[in-house]
Design a protein around this nucleic acid. Sequence first.
DNA 1: CTTGACCCTGTAGCAACTACAGGGTTTGTA
DNA 2: TACAAACCCTGTAGTTGCTACAGGGTCAAG
Lengths: 146, 146
Amino acid sequence: MRIGELARRTGCDVETVRYYEKEGLLTIPQRDGSGYRLYAGQQLEELQFIRHCRSLGMPLAEIRALLRFRYHPHWDCSGVNAILDTQIVRVQEQMQALQTLLEQLYLLRTECAQRQQAGECGIMKNLNQAAKGEPCLCHPLPSSFA
Amino acid sequence: MRIGELARRTGCDVETVRYYEKEGLLTIPQRDGSGYRLYAGQQLEELQFIRHCRSLGMPLAEIRALLRFRYHPHWDCSGVNAILDTQIVRVQEQMQALQTLLEQLYLLRTECAQRQQAGECGIMKNLNQAAKGEPCLCHPLPSSFA
DNA sequence: CTTGACCCTGTAGCAACTACAGGGTTTGTA
DNA sequence: TACAAACCCTGTAGTTGCTACAGGGTCAAG
């Protein structure tokens, strides 16, 4: 099959397929007389493997590592577990950061209840206060929020 | 003060300050005889305003909009509220996505309990199954996970 | 024989920085 | 006064995971 069909069957953009090839994730396909890429079932599976891992939020570098385990089924799988664990920690950390953010945003949002001039708006007042290094709703400690 | 001191006092990288200037977020500073940027308290506050908004996860485009409200305190503040609401929704959506991801990762992680060959590893088996379009732990429905 | 759909390579863009390269200036110290 | 370290300048390229062209070639249907 040509690249268009491969893309259609995986729900992936044609450009993305070429990108994965350039990044060394997909095995190099054969070419027909006109230079068109020709794919077989192997690459269809590879691509679906990649898309699946992406849907789990994994970066391409780790997918590349997982693909190596796929090609070497006799390898010790502890590296696979390590990749999963890394990914879990990464997602947990991101969620924690977002949770904090969300609480700060909620607090800030309550500061303005009605239409008024920006200079009187509780949100803007809070932001301007923070800009002066004074404590604000989201960062009650003096200055140096990191 | 020069750019280094400004950066130090805001916990911001010097390159980032120049970047914000290029992006039109910071007002253009004066220059001394050697072409060095000279900042006053105004820009210190601007930069702290920007860093604060960034710490709330806001994209630069929305910070630019908020800065305009800062310069025009007589404007109606409903745009400020709208920006906050947009940001809250964005963060909520991101958290929801991460939550789903995390559950899938947890499920997948339980599939491999001990060291073994990658070919026998429950995680790899699941990923390979998904690559064939068969149902897997994270995407129990047949194929077409988006 | 022409139109449209498909394919190719290569480059530039997105967001928000970060990291140089290759230069000039200032400041402190010997 | 000489010199080195620390600072500043501009401009460009890299990061991640794509996406979107530009400018061409190929192929099948009508």
